[in-house]
Design a protein around this nucleic acid. Sequence first.
DNA 1: GGCTTGCGTTGACATGGGTCAAAATCGGAT
DNA 2: ATCCGATTTTGACCCATGTCAACGCAAGCC
Lengths: 243, 243
Amino acid sequence: MTKMASTKSASFALDASRCLICSAKALNMCGSLEPEELSRLSQIARCESFGNGEALFHEGDPAKTVYNITDGAIRLSTSLKNGRRQVVGFLFTGDFIGFSDRESFPWTGEAVRGAKVCRFSRADLARITTEFPKVEHRLLEMATADIASAQDHIVMLGQGSAAEKVSAFLLALSRKSAKRGGIENPVHLPMTREDIADYLGLAFETVSRCFTRLENEGLIAIESTRVVRIKDFEALADFSDDE
Amino acid sequence: MTKMASTKSASFALDASRCLICSAKALNMCGSLEPEELSRLSQIARCESFGNGEALFHEGDPAKTVYNITDGAIRLSTSLKNGRRQVVGFLFTGDFIGFSDRESFPWTGEAVRGAKVCRFSRADLARITTEFPKVEHRLLEMATADIASAQDHIVMLGQGSAAEKVSAFLLALSRKSAKRGGIENPVHLPMTREDIADYLGLAFETVSRCFTRLENEGLIAIESTRVVRIKDFEALADFSDDE
DNA sequence: GGCTTGCGTTGACATGGGTCAAAATCGGAT
DNA sequence: ATCCGATTTTGACCCATGTCAACGCAAGCC
């Protein structure tokens, strides 16, 4: 609840070369552009760093900016009147924040253990998309992936026991990591048990108990609090929608 | 589970005039086009009708087509190994089905009490979008709305009691109906209690009990099983995330 | 009309997971 | 290395909701 920033955020303009060597380029919307087009894009981008728990924006802030995540992880969440919090998504390198038609941000976006982003003004991006239909095409692809990811989240939330949800969550994290070129197996969890709980609609104690139980049953090994090795993908997958 | 079709599906080609007078035009992707462009679109569209419970496509079918809903309601769902079902969304007039990058449909799409759609082949649509960037722009807007709707669903599923979920569901249906030009208040529910339960991650008995309870507390009036009048929007909204 | 069939409601009961509480462990700061 | 607050784990208890079961009701059909 009361997260504090361990690092101050920094912001600086980009030069064209920085875009060219950006490791997240292939994953996000910039990947569709030629070098000379990329330099147009770099002129409107600002690079920012955020420390542990630091907010990029708050629920209700005017949504004048959009972000490409270039490193780390971001948590999108909303707090409800009853004091509880729903984590709507975890976003990683290559993901885009800003698919929304609303005037203000519907979620709070916070760095989970440090993150780097490229920030654009929405108006600048609109100009880019009309100039380069390729970018709009790429954005539609990314929005489509977002829809798939949200729908997977829905299935995770709606069905099954707490242990099923946690299993499905671990498998999804592993898959996502592999998809962006990271390691598949020892799954790294940048977020706390409470974050996971608020993502899955559970109490954090329940999430903790599920980890312990999955370890006792030999499906996973908790190498450290934030590193989990999946010992039996098959069984975990069966478990995740079969119990 | 074993829904049966009360009407046979029919399919026929469109002529340009039918597109021109289509009442759903303003809501879906066709709305961005000029009359002469619309006639290009009408050449690749086929109009289809589906009866009560009839499937447009099944989970796993090759996803070679996309749909514009022109009338009625469609239920997207998946069945899990444990025999349970998750309803991923209800789609209404003006909604688009086909934001997916996968080879095969991840969901089964079925008509809820009858529906009409315009069907396009994915390949034809891809040609249209490259020819008319306006259509791609409009599709991105619609995908953005889809993301917002999926995220609302996530918040509904993750947080709160059964009664909170049902309240939020009723309010969302009412809002959606108003948004597409329908009536806001006596909310019409084309779907069964079981459909609602599978959408909200509840047992259908629980949904039924919540309706009864909300009526007893004076927040709604059940005019008939499928028609609910909201008597106190304010209280229902407070209830929906406050209890 | 009376039957059939699917859908909805209500009741009784069991249990998974929320809540409260306390101890254990981790990790950053000095 | 030590300390201190944050996070995680574990335990005990209880309630909301799932499950099982019976019944009511409305629509369609003969």
